Each structure stands twice: as C-alpha cells, then as structure tokens.
Measured scan of single mutants.
Amino acid sequence: QTIHNGDQTYHYDNPEEAIKVAQKLAKIYNLTVTVKGNTVQVH
C-alpha cells in the first residue's frame, strides 16, 4: 500500500494501516483521501 501526500510517499505492508494514516493526515491538514487500488492519495 502506498500513500502519496503531496511530494511525500509512504509505503505500508498493511492496507488498513495505510488508510488510517492517510485519514489522520487528511484531518490534520484538512485534505481529501482518495483510494485507488493499492495507492492512497492525500491531497
């Protein structure tokens, strides 16, 4: 599972963990989380 947060990319073995982290980032920075296959984008 990969999270793209602007210019930063994070890799997680656990998809659920990746989505949790993405949602935390989204709340902190007031962003949107988009899940596309194995990629979670925060923008």
Score class of each variant (00 low, 15 high):
Q41T: 15
H11W: 11
N5E: 10
T32K: 10
I3L: 12
H11R: 08
T34E: 05
Y12A: 04
E16L: 08
Y29I: 04
I3K: 08
N14M: 03
K20Q: 08
N38H: 05
Y12N: 01
N14P: 03
D7C: 15
G6Q: 10
H43S: 05
N30F: 10
I3C: 15
I19P: 00
P15L: 08
Y12M: 05
I19Y: 11
Y29A: 08
V35S: 02
A26P: 02
V21R: 04
T2K: 07
V21W: 14
N5C: 14
Q23M: 09
K24E: 14
A26Y: 06
Y10F: 11
E16S: 06
T34P: 00
Y29N: 07
Y10K: 02
V21T: 05
D7E: 08
I3S: 11
P15Q: 08
V40S: 01
T39Q: 06
D7L: 14
V33M: 02
H4F: 13
T9H: 08
T39R: 04
Q23F: 05
I28K: 13
K20D: 06
V40M: 03
I28Q: 11
L25T: 01
K20Y: 09
A26Q: 14
I28E: 15
A22C: 12
H43L: 07
D13I: 06
V33L: 03
D7M: 14
G37F: 04
N5H: 12
Q41Y: 15
H43T: 06
K27Q: 15
K20T: 06
T39A: 05
V40K: 00
Y10V: 03
A18N: 01
K27L: 15
T9I: 15
V40Q: 00
I28L: 14
K24M: 15
V40N: 00
Y10A: 02
K27R: 07
N38D: 03
I19Q: 13
N38V: 05
T39N: 05
T2S: 10
V21S: 07
Q8S: 09
I19H: 11
N14R: 04
K20L: 10
Y10G: 02
V35N: 01
E17P: 00
L25Q: 01
H11T: 14
T9F: 15
I19N: 09
T9P: 03
K36N: 12
E16T: 07
G37L: 04
D13M: 08
V33T: 03
A26H: 10
A26F: 06
P15M: 09
V42S: 00
A22V: 03
T39P: 00
V42R: 00
H4S: 09
G37Q: 03
P15G: 04
T2Q: 11
V40L: 06
K24H: 14
I19R: 13
Q23R: 08
K20C: 15
A18H: 00
Y29Q: 09
A26D: 12
H43M: 06
A22N: 00
T32S: 09
E16H: 07
D7F: 15
Q1G: 12
D13W: 05
N14K: 03
T34C: 08
E17D: 08
N14Q: 04
A18E: 01
D7T: 15
H11P: 02
K20S: 07
H43K: 07
T39C: 14
K24C: 15
K27P: 05
N38Q: 04
V35M: 02
L31N: 03
D7N: 10
K27N: 14
L25F: 04
E17R: 06
T32W: 07
A26E: 15
N5M: 12
Y10D: 01
E17W: 07
L31Y: 07
H11E: 09
H43W: 07
H43A: 04
T39I: 11
T34M: 05
V42H: 01
G6E: 08
V33I: 08
K20M: 08
T39K: 05
V35G: 00
G6F: 13
N30D: 06
Y12L: 07
L25G: 01
I28W: 14
V42G: 00
N14H: 05
V42C: 07
H11M: 07
Q1P: 12
V42L: 05
T2G: 11
T2L: 13
V21L: 06
N38S: 09
D13C: 06
Y10N: 02
N30I: 04
K27H: 14
G37R: 01
A22R: 00
V42E: 00
T9W: 14
K20W: 11
K24T: 13
A26S: 11
D7H: 15
P15K: 06
A18S: 01
I3M: 10
K36W: 10
H11G: 03
K27D: 14
T9E: 09
V21M: 14
H43F: 08
E17Q: 12
A26N: 11
V35A: 03
I19K: 12
P15S: 06
A26T: 11
T34A: 03
T34Q: 04
Y29R: 06
E16Q: 07
G37Y: 04
V33Y: 00
V21K: 05
H11K: 07
Y29P: 15
V42W: 02
V35R: 01
A18D: 01
K20E: 10
D13G: 08
K24W: 15
A26I: 14
V42Q: 01
A18F: 03
N38Y: 02
I19L: 13
T34L: 05
Y29H: 11
Y12C: 15
I28A: 05
Q41H: 14
N5Q: 12
K36E: 10
Q1S: 13
T32L: 10
N14T: 15
I28G: 03
I19D: 05
E17K: 07
T39W: 07
H4L: 10
L31Q: 03
Y10T: 03
N14C: 11
P15Y: 09
H11I: 14
P15C: 13
T2E: 12
Q1A: 11
H11D: 05
T2W: 13
L31F: 05
H4E: 10
T2A: 12
D7R: 10
Q41L: 14
A22G: 06
T34W: 04
L25P: 03
A18V: 01
L31H: 09
Q23H: 10
A26M: 14
Q1F: 08
G37K: 02
T32G: 04
L31S: 03
H4Y: 12
L31E: 02
K36H: 13
D13V: 06
L25S: 00
G37P: 01
E17Y: 07
E17N: 04
K27C: 15
P15V: 10
K36F: 11
V42P: 01
N14V: 02
Q1L: 11
A18G: 01
V33D: 00
Q1D: 10
A18C: 09
T2R: 03
V21I: 09
Q41K: 11
H4R: 07
G37H: 03
Y12K: 00
N38L: 04
I3F: 09
T2I: 11
Q41W: 13
N30C: 14
T9C: 15
I19E: 10
N30V: 03
N5V: 12
V33P: 00
G37S: 02
L31R: 01
L31M: 07
Q1K: 08
K20H: 06
I28P: 02
I28M: 08
K27I: 13
V35Q: 03
N38P: 03
T9K: 05
T32R: 07
T32I: 12
Y12T: 03
I3P: 10
P15E: 13
L25K: 00
A22Q: 02
K20A: 12
D7I: 15
Q41F: 15
Q8K: 14
Q1M: 13
P15I: 08
P15F: 08
V33C: 05
A18K: 00
Q23Y: 07
Q8T: 13
K20V: 05
V40R: 00
H11Q: 09
T39D: 05
L31A: 07
D13L: 08
G6I: 10
N38F: 03
N30L: 05
K24F: 15
N38E: 02
Y10E: 02
A26K: 13
N30S: 06
K24V: 14
D13Q: 09
Y12G: 01
L31W: 08
V42Y: 02
G37A: 04
I19C: 13
G6P: 09
T9A: 05
N5Y: 13
L25R: 00
I3H: 11
Y10S: 01
K36T: 10
A22M: 03
I3V: 12
V21Q: 11
N5F: 13
L31P: 00
T34V: 08
V40A: 01
A26G: 08
Q41D: 03
Q8M: 13
G37M: 02
Y29E: 13
K36R: 10
A18M: 02
N30T: 04
I28R: 08
Q1E: 11
K24D: 13
A26L: 08
Q8F: 14
H4T: 09
Q1N: 10
T2Y: 12
T34S: 08
D13H: 08
Y12F: 15
G37N: 05
K20F: 09
G6T: 10
Q1T: 12
H43Q: 05
A22F: 04
Y29C: 14
V35L: 05
P15W: 09
T9L: 14
T39L: 06
K24L: 15
H43Y: 06
H11Y: 14
I3W: 13
A22L: 04
